[in-house]
């Protein structure tokens, strides 16, 4: 029950950000769903495997990359329309703000731990997207091989 509540919240937050950056109404619902899928895998990794924030964000971004690419192909829209709103529950914006707050409040040691978090999370998200892209490309190559193989074997028969 609590889990479902969090997912509804993530959906609404994603759609809210999508409205702010002017995503077309046709893509609003799907971008919300992509964001929810990313957060499901994030929470799932946290609950089932380990509570490591770098790995969690990597898995979340990987899911967003793959589901976003599928949504983009389904709607024939650029993939950025689905990825950027979906990223909002994961991005280290809150931590980036904490860094500057603690620097201004003269507590640099607290700020530094937040700097490390920002860098690690941003890196994990970017790597997750890169891996998703590689995965999709590999899938396309395999699909092409398979279809040519099937076509030639059909002709032989």
């Amino acid at each position: 029950m609590y889990f479902i509540l969090v997912l509804i919240e993530v959906y609404i937050a994603t759609v809210g950000f999508a409205v702010l950056i002017n995503v077309s109404p046709r893509a609003l619902n799907l971008s919300g769903l992509v964001g929810t899928a990313g957060y499901v895998s994030y929470l799932g990794y946290q609950a089932l495997i380990s509570d490591n924030y770098v790995a969690e964000n990597l898995v979340g971004a990987f899911t967003i990359g793959i589901v976003g690419m599928l949504a983009a192909r389904y709607k024939k829209m650029p993939v950025i329309v689905f990825n950027i709103p979906a990223l909002v529950p994961l991005v280290p914006g809150g931590q980036a703000y904490q860094v500057m707050k603690y620097i201004a409040l003269r507590q640099p040691h607290v700020a530094f731990s937040y700097v490390m978090q920002v860098v690690m999370i941003a890196g994990a998200l970017a790597m997750g997207f890169l891996l998703a892209e590689l995965f999709i490309q590999a899938g396309d190559v395999v699909h092409r091989w398979f279809s040519t193989w099937r076509a030639t074997s059909y002709r032989r028969k």
């Binding site: 702010l20 950027i84 909002v88 991005v91 914006g93 703000y97 941003a122 890196g123 998200l125």
Partner: peptide
């Protein structure tokens, strides 16, 4: 933290790392 969320540059930070 909640109220500054529409303004924070989280997506820009991630895009920066992707460009890198």
């Amino acid at each position: 933290i909640g109220a500054v969320m529409p303004l924070v540059p989280g997506v820009q930070i991630t895009n920066a790392v992707r460009d890198l």
